[in-house]
Amino acid sequence: MTAALQDSPPAGTAPPVRSRRVSRTVVSGGERVSRGWMVAATAVVAVASLYFLAPVLWLVIASTKSASDLFSTPGFALADWHLWENVRDLSTYDGGIFWRWALNSVVYSVVGSVLTTLLCAATGYALAVYRFRGRALLIGIVLGSLLVPGTVLAQPTYVLLVNLGLNNTYWGLLLPGLSYPFGVLLAWIFAQNAIPTELLEAARLDGSGEFRTFAGIGLRLMSSGLVTILLFAFLGSWNNYLLPLLVLTDAELMPLTVGLTGWNQASITIPSLQILTVVGSLVSVVPIAIVFLALQRFWRAGLSAGSVRG
């Protein structure tokens, strides 16, 4: 363990004191481990956690400060409670444009991820369930396109959207996100593992049509895997930055990422925007963090299924 401990530089501070081997052992997770190592390991992890949590903690504390306290009080100390005033200012600035951005982000992410997941599910299901001409080609395309880095496509996609007259529209940002080969790969793996042949045969014998079988049996059996695809597609479009930056010029259409970074840039000349950027960041992080952490069980299972076979 010593090397592992020393290799862990996250916060660069206080490598735990090498504890003497204590004869007493404790049982943890069904395995017998020495108490000294347990304290040491937990200390390393705790120090690392500090590094990962500190910026988020700062964001929460900073959001409760007034614009002037943000600069004049120590970062991690609470000052006068100003959170609600900040949220009010956030909501009224520039005619409430912040909530417009939030709504846009929700629309892009929810509509986009639901449609993406459906496309991936249908394609993955067909790859797993049917043998048809062109199937091998399709699989080759899906695997091959995993090597194409998404952001490299942003610039030519922008050129394409300009030619189609879709730049600076909702569709211009929604449609390109629907192409998600990694999601197809995951859906294919899930469908292979989760849908027993016998069940489909039985459904056919009962006279169920192919599409009804897919909607009634396929989607339901694949559901825990589909949650993973849904979450990653959602996160992908919630975090999207380069494409909207290129495609959208109208502030009314922008998602949170573009809007908030715009404020951050403008705060050099308009200092009052700094605290609004801080509060806006907090407001944009909280819902997604809650959703993501609440659904851990699903995407964790999905991830391990994906990485074992993928």
């Binding site: 363990m1 943890s28 997770g29 069904g30 395995e31 481990v33 190592w37 347990m38 040491a40 390991a41 937990t42 992890v45 705790a46 690392a48 956690s49 990962f52 949590l53 910026p55 988020v56 700062w58 964001l59 919630w238 975090n239 930055y241 949170l256 990422t257 908030l260 970074t261 951050n264 950027t277 960041s281 944009s284 992080v285 997604i288 963090a289 993501f292 952490l293």
Partner: peptide, 29 residues
């Protein structure tokens, strides 16, 4: 390794930044 106590909490802490959009993380830092 089963050495770490309060494993779920610490895993949550290490993972939390992933739920922060990259652009917002850059603003924050």
């Amino acid at each position: 390794s089963a050495l770490v106590r309060a494993r779920r909490f610490f895993q949550f802490a290490v993972f939390l930044p992933y739920a922060v959009p990259g652009v917002i993380a850059a603003l924050l830092w």
